[in-house]
């Protein structure tokens, strides 16, 4: 398990510029991915999962964001201090990202072959001259690898000629068309049906295992995270609240938010539905000082509003950011 560290995010803060000030979305995110590891990032809508991932690749909306504090290390190098050329290299050769909605991730006026070909072209552009034929062979190989029927035809198809599940496979093919060390999958199955979602997740798992690539799977479904990840991060309102292996997290959740989230998931074995978590995510413009979960927490105490709790190791590989654990 203790492979070399591939990606490490330390105390990352990201603010967005909005009317009336800064929307303080991320508040001290700490995140770690080792080589070949499958990491799940779970959280509700608007908790900053995608913002965290976009800040790794530096694809946040230009001019609208501000990073007051924090470091992102990729293979020991700080991404935030990289030159433009280095970041381009990171995007084209090291990290691939699969987006949530396959309908908008592909350009409707170019063929599939064209779009996969571009990825291959730019990922090798730093080294050698790549010929058109070679790109074609490689992109057809990538389409074959995601089990799409009739790769030759798909190669000359446009995105609108494919179904949602097939488009998502094309996006995965783009991500794996050239060797990468890290794949970021941003809710790859959310906009698809359950049976198709299951297929996509199995495919991703297979590819990651075969190539020994590290993957960060962003999801809002705890069930998906359990099936896909070696280690899970639970995120709430811009902070990581708990991290553990799935076995530990589902058996012995510690943070009140994780507990509430787990209880809210309906089970196919029955047993009714818990009452959910009262309240809603705090306003990012004026977030409460201290722990961001305090307003919804049932075990709130005065110390919670003083300063944000830090991640604290309660046992090996199980970290929790809550004052309750220290008492």
């Amino acid at each position: 398990m203790d492979n070399k560290i591939l990606l490490e995010i330390k105390n990352l803060h990201v603010w967005y510029k909005v009317y009336g000030g800064y929307s303080k979305v991320l508040q001290g995110v700490n995140f770690l991915v080792r080589e070949g590891e499958r990491v799940g990032l779970v959280g509700e809508a608007g908790c900053g999962k995608t913002t965290t991932m976009k800040s790794i690749l530096q694809i946040l909306p230009p001019g609208d964001f501000h990073i007051p504090r924090g470091q992102i290390f990729y293979k020991g190098q700080d991404v935030l201090k990289m030159s433009f050329k280095e970041i381009q290299r990171l995007r084209s050769r090291e990290i691939a990202m699969i987006f949530q909605d396959p309908t908008t991730a592909l350009n409707p006026v170019f063929t599939i072959g064209n779009q996969i070909g571009d990825v291959i072209k730019y990922s090798t552009a730093f080294e050698e001259n790549v010929y058109k034929e070679k790109i074609k062979i490689q992109s057809i190989k990538a389409i074959k690898e995601v089990y799409l029927p009739d790769p030759e035809r798909i190669h000359i198809n446009y995105p609108f000629q494919l179904s949602g599940g097939m488009r998502q496979r094309v996006c995965i093919a783009m991500a794996i068309s050239s060797p990468r060390n890290l794949i970021i999958a941003d809710e790859p199955g959310t906009s698809l049906d359950v049976t198709i979602q299951d297929q996509i997740h199995r495919l991703l798992n297979k590819i990651v295992e075969k190539r020994n690539t590290a993957i960060i799977l962003i999801t809002h479904s705890l069930g998906v995270a359990k099936e896909m990840a070696d280690r899970i991060y639970v995120m709430y309102a811009g902070t990581i609240v708990e991290t553990a292996t799935p076995e530990v997290l589902f058996k012995n959740p510690v943070h009140p938010y994780t507990k509430g989230l787990l209880a809210s998931v309906p089970k196919i074995s029955g047993g009714g539905i818990a009452k959910g978590i009262p309240g809603k995510i705090p306003d990012y413009l004026n977030p409460p000082s201290g722990c961001r979960f305090q307003l919804r927490c049932e075990q709130e105490s005065p110390i919670c509003s003083e300063k944000p709790p830090q991640l604290f190791e309660i046992e090996k590989n199980h970290l929790v950011a809550c004052y309750l654990t220290k008492r």
Binding site: S163, D193, V194, I196, D198, Q199, G223, K226, F250, I268
Partner: peptide, 28 residues
């Protein structure tokens, strides 16, 4: 059976309920 086997679950007792042999293939 295909639908139930595709549901992502979080506990072991649920895992037992899932039909094992029918895995999801194809599209609607």
């Amino acid at each position: 059976q295909m639908l139930i086997s595709s549901v992502p679950v979080i506990s072991e007792e649920e895992e037992k309920l899932k039909p094992k042999k029918v895995i999801s293939i194809g599209e609607i």
